[in-house]
Design a binder for these strands. Sequence first.
DNA 1: TCCTCCCGCCAAGCA
DNA 2: TGCTTGGCGGGAGGA
Length: 942
Amino acid sequence: MAEIEGVLPSLQFLSSTKVPELHLSRPLSTQSIKNTSSSWLSFPLCFFLNRRCVEKQENEHSEPCKNILKTPLKQAATSQLVLTERQPDCQPLTTPPKLKETPPADPWTPTSNLKMLISAASPEIRSREQRRQLSDSSNEVLQTKHCSQEHLLGDEYEKSQPSRKEKSLGLLCHKFLARYPDYPSPSQKSYICLDEVTEELHVERRRIYDIVNVLESLHMVSRLARNRYVWHGRHNLPQTLQALKKVGEENKYIQQIQMIKKREYEHEFDPDSERNEEMASSFGSSDQSEMSFVELPGVEFHAASVNGRKYKSLRVMSQKFVMLFLVSTPQIVSLEVAAKILIGEDQLEDLDKSKFKTKIRRLYDIANVLSSLKLIKKVHVTEERGRKPAFKWTGPEVLPNTQDTKLEATSTTCSPPVSESIPSKEQCSKALFPSKGKQNFTRHSSLIKLVKSIENDRRKIQSAPTSPVKISASTYQSLPVFPNTIAQFPAITKHPLEGQSKAAEEMQMKCALSSPEAVPKPEPSQQPGLSQPLGVCPASHSSMSPVILPHPQSGVSYAICLHPSQAHTVTTYSPGFMLQPLPCANLTGIKSNNSKVLNKITTEEGDTQKGLDEPTKSLAAEERPETKSETSSQRCLKRSQALPENNLIKRHKSDEESLDSTLGESTKNEKTPSNSSQMNREMDNVQEERQNETKTVDQNMSSCCDQCTKENISEDEDKIKTKQDIPVAFAIPAPETFFPSGYLIPLTHCTHGNKAECSNKEKAGVCSLQHTPYSSPITGVIPMPASELKTVNIPAFHITPLNIMVSPNSIAAAPVLSNSCLNSSSTSSAPNPSSSALNFMLQHIGLLPAGVQVAANPVLQHVPVSSQSENISHSSGSTNVQEGKPSAPKEPQEPQTVTENFFRTPGGPNTEPSLSANSDGTQRTSQEAPYIPQRKLEVSED
DNA sequence: TCCTCCCGCCAAGCA
DNA sequence: TGCTTGGCGGGAGGA
């Protein structure tokens, strides 16, 4: 009897579904068998699986199929099996506890379970077994049911009721989805009758609406008539996601997310900050109070209500929720932020708790459905203030334009060909805001272009196949929309810890394969440097040699090295942009070292499988340019002084972003005629747009610096990989009017409290960043044998990169920032050379005329640099990812502090510390992006 | 205690 | 007018 009681929940659960009968309709997949043979699927489920099969056969003759319109049922699994099969990593529903306490007399081992399931899966075996067991099993089950009914009294009845989990929307959605194929045949329309669904799933109609609404938002279903929907499956998903992403970009959701984070941050430190008003006005100014449903051409939207409710519906919320994932980097969105954004667009001022709670509830509903679709996955973001629920995008990567999607859809094996006519980007855009929808978004063209450019770059990286086969640009462009499955990621993500050299090789391969530069070029001699910008090209700065300089204040000598070519490079100069964008070489180094690390350094993203693509995305998107007033820069400066730790991270990300954009630029600049004409056209368009938009920036300068920077990056990474050479100093070649970066490296021990800071967990990020050896946060490295490293005590070095952009025309007017600024942001590092010292050094080496002063950048002094996993993890500082997976083993790392001082000439009006390049060739200041507080953040999966 | 989200009321809108 | 649709929030189950 105890067995029967233990079985009851499963029995009820199973009897409430039609799934077991489906189980017989097709062979079980290997995964299914594997799952079902696992320990959690023990006797009751297995037994009743089989039992339901028998019942199904019994009933088939007496009960005609009611579902005339229905598509053949797709999924052959119980709801639990569905859960497990569709989300192998999610926790299966718990087996009734009584079962564990009272194991059946007949030991149901995994083997026996497997045998049972194989039997169920094989029609022949099944029928034979069923014939044999028919009488016994049916009697047994009937007896069980009778017995159970006798005991379904009072508490026992309540206990036998399906738990909340078993009635959850997610599980219901699984069951719902199991009814229909992911990719239904275009010729065979699948219709959904809500009445039938509610009856068969034994669920109230209200719940089905929740599911259908979310599915409708993704255009997986569309409403045909009352009570009737059409099932599209995932055919429209790529286009839908693309459209949503586009709209999300136009909505500036990134900025909104950043605003919210910033606001939270400022609430912590300055509860009375006036920025709340700023944020509120920002939301209001976007005039997005009216939500619009994003439609796709050919997929009509027949909402029951054409006004009012439609724009508050779960559909729109769902779309916006998805947009947040698609535009944000990392693709993790916390419920809190999502709710705030959703509310904010309605009424930010009415951000009362009840409304917030309601939004959260709805977001849970949506998230459950999206989780069932495997588009998102629940994680937990742990900040200093606590653990927050969040969701991580696990759906397909969305490429920036429809054209790509079309190509992908037709060339991929991951998804079947798109049956519907794929609209052009323009058509799609027109359809995004139908009838009532207003496109009132204050679109920032440079932002969109930046995003596109970044996405292009990301795509090029992400599309790298694992096999060392070079692909043409056209082939490359036709790569599919990748689901984030481990199978589709390079081997480097699977073996991130097999050594730096191996990782570097993989990175090299990936680099060569992922970028169009891998296409054979007419000038092979240039290929190494051009086609492998991420560190596989040989060092080209052999001519550089460090210059030892004394530091008059600290008594520490510094080595400075500048690339000789800088003096010869000529380009135009725009006084509006003073600092040449300097990519973050250390990011590249990070990539080469450990792909897993990338996730942590750049994002709260926890998906290690996305390691290689994440940084690019995150860096690019995290700090997208945003037009801000001068107050932003002032605040930024203020924050940089008050919170050097945050500043470190921010600057680090900024550098990474710079690298991203620069690589993108380089990638485009390196395109050769051998690339596909489509690529060339695309590039031409991009270039043309950039030229139109960037009035003050010369492309030549960008490309020149990009190439030079890339070389340095490659060198940097090369050193990181080999660890045989030590970067002492380097410089990027610069355009004519700039004296670009170099590094000041103190040649004595700098042990200023680094260890003490390391002991402080709160400063782990800063500390770890300081441990980064051999890498340059900005440009590149100069090879130096390890022996030399020992000689000069490199591990204790504080490499001080110089970003010297001296305009002879304006150098005389260079402002000199107070040393206090310099010092204020260097609390966690070695003493920085003061401006005067640096000026002295610059003058000493002839970079500056006598009497000319350049200012040290007060904000960007700290550039966390890391080339190794733990450093990255910490350096994000602030951001940690926990997905319940063991973290990568850490390699021993010599402590090293990297301090950065930026020098810039006053030619430009900005006094902002840094300028980085947009991928569209424009330059932007770090102030343009709202300051995002980087706090300790952990993301853990449930 | 907080998170999660089921449940059902009830109003808007449609046939 | 009845039915469909879906916004909304209480409150229960679970962690």
